[in-house]
Simulated assay, not measured.
Amino acid sequence: MSEGEFDPFGDQTVSNELSGVLPVEYTAFHSQHHRAYLCYAHLQLGTRQDAVDVVDDVFTFLLKVWPQALRESSLHGFAWSVLREHVERRLALLCRTPAMVETAWLAALRRSKRQRLELHGARLALYAAIAELPERDYDIALLAFLGGYSEERVAQMMGISTAAVRSKIRGARRALSRKLGLDWAAGEEKDQ
């Protein structure tokens, strides 16, 4: 996947009026993560409005518990778990399963109308294979492969080590290669 393959949102930061009232750390956290959270939520929920609503709810909740969130062993890990919980709750409320395969497929079709249909079929198979990965591997693959985020950025967002992300990406590539019937050579990921 190309860098930033799936990004339906432009830059969205805290408004100037609010930035002077909100805690500086919160404003910085919001600026760093808002776009990535929207991308993740949109891939999971399938609609831009649902993603915006959920991410707004996440950041509202984080603001309410901000002093406690700062005391967590990992602010980023805590915030990521809040995002996942809100997305899962919205999916349950809507009686839907994650829409990642369809959302990513439609985004790929919109971006590349001139490409051949078999390439799109291969992407659809890849998205379906990503959807079958275990929970943490799925989140990492979604952010790295579809969101185009670096290993360092994914690690920071999720509150885990870069080495853990690198290991999960390597494992995801092996698993995806097996599911798709492709040859995978160790070390290939270093070229990308």
Rank of each mutant, 00 (worst) to 15 (best):
L94H: 09
R84Q: 15
E118C: 10
L93G: 04
Y138F: 15
V54S: 02
L117Q: 02
D50S: 13
L75M: 13
W66Q: 03
A131D: 09
A122C: 10
S73E: 08
L133Q: 06
F59T: 07
V52D: 07
R116C: 08
A172R: 00
A155M: 08
A125S: 11
P134G: 08
S73I: 06
A164H: 06
L91T: 07
L75S: 05
E152Q: 12
R153G: 09
T162D: 08
F61T: 12
A172Q: 00
L143Q: 08
G159D: 09
E151F: 14
E135V: 10
E72G: 09
L109V: 11
F59M: 11
E85T: 08
G171M: 06
G147T: 03
E72C: 13
H76W: 10
V54G: 05
W80Y: 14
T103C: 09
F145D: 02
A155Y: 08
I140S: 04
A108S: 13
T103K: 00
E152V: 08
E118W: 12
G171N: 13
F78M: 14
M100W: 01
G147R: 00
R89N: 13
D139Q: 02
A122Y: 07
L119F: 08
V101E: 04
R166T: 14
G171I: 03
R170L: 15
A125D: 12
W66H: 09
V165Y: 10
S112H: 10
L75N: 05
S177L: 05
S150P: 01
A104E: 01
R173W: 12
P67N: 05
F61I: 06
C95D: 14
A131C: 04
R96P: 00
